[in-house]
């Protein structure tokens, strides 16, 4: 085993990130790059620090997350409902097939102009498109999860007299949890891209601007460092959420032996 492989994972990743940052910094300082085009890591850190101190960056992050979380809650609940309906009836299954066929290929950001006409320049429009982005991955994966539950598990549940709603919450949902988590993860990935894109497009009027708005606003004033700062926050949040999903999986499906540890 090489020295590199013997290091703990955290150290390996940290070293790689440090190397990338060093190369980036060297490129900007030694390469005489036009600072309007590329900001150095130190400039980005400075810009991020300044906007964190006056609360602008936190506010933008908060607004983005609120829109994302609201949209995901609505989308996930509708997704669960569609999948549950599909499990219990033929028409529900057909409805799910038809709706996902129509809407899944449609990038939900393409609905934004319509949402703006319906809801105006308000966070509601963003929540709407985020919900639309999350329904389908959740519904499809949950449905698939329900359908792949072992026959014996289902018979054991029916043997206990479980039916209807109690069957869904007591056995189907936990038994399908590996697929459900996969669905919510996919929904988060779609939702996250959608919320940032939607904010980039119309920013959201007044004080309710999110990270997309923050980046676009920085472009408007040619604050390249701030553009980078916004991007870094988006990336870091993504890493945190991935970690959160990993934590949830370790505490549930991995612990229950339904999925092997990564």
């Amino acid at each position: 085993m090489s020295t590199w492989a013997r290091l703990p994972a955290v150290a390996r990743y940290a070293l790689l990130v440090a190397a990338i940052l060093a190369i980036w910094q060297a490129y900007v300082t030694l390469g005489h790059v036009q600072p309007l085009l590329v900001a150095s890591p130190l400039d980005v850190a400075g810009a991020a620090w300044a906007d964190l101190k006056d609360g602008q960056l936190e506010k933008a992050t908060y607004n983005t997350l609120i829109n994302l979380i609201l949209g995901m809650i609505v989308g996930t609940l509708i997704g669960f409902a569609l999948a549950s309906f599909a499990v219990f009836s033929r028409i529900g299954q057909d409805l799910l097939t038809v709706l996902t066929s129509i809407f899944n290929p449609l990038p939900s950001i393409a609905i934004l102009p319509l949402a703006m006409i319906w809801f105006g320049l308000q966070p509601k429009s963003i929540v709407f498109v985020v919900a639309l982005a999350t329904i389908w991955p959740v519904a499809l994966n949950t449905d698939n999860g329900f359908r792949t539950i072992s026959q014996t598990t289902q018979l054991a549940a029916r043997n206990l007299g479980l039916r209807g709603w109690r069957l869904v919450t007591g056995v189907l949902l936990p038994a399908a949890l590996p697929s459900i988590i996969t669905g919510v993860k996919a929904a988060w990935a779609f939702g996250w891209r959608t919320v940032v894109a939607a904010e980039l497009i119309f920013g959201v009027a007044g004080s309710a601007g999110g990270l997309g708005w923050y980046i676009n606003n920085a472009r408007y004033y040619l604050n390249t460092s701030n553009i980078f700062a916004g991007l870094v926050v988006i990336s870091v949040l993504g890493i945190i959420v991935e970690g959160l999903f990993g934590f949830i999986e370790r505490r549930t499906v991995v612990k229950w032996g339904m999925k092997r540890a990564a």
């Binding site: 072992s150 014996t152 598990t153 018979l155 054991a156 056995v171 936990p174 038994a175 949890l177 549930t252 229950w256 032996g257 339904m258």
Partner: peptide, 9 residues
Amino acid sequence: QDFDQLFAW
């Protein structure tokens, strides 16, 4: 016969 008659969670 199948072991997955027990609820894994």
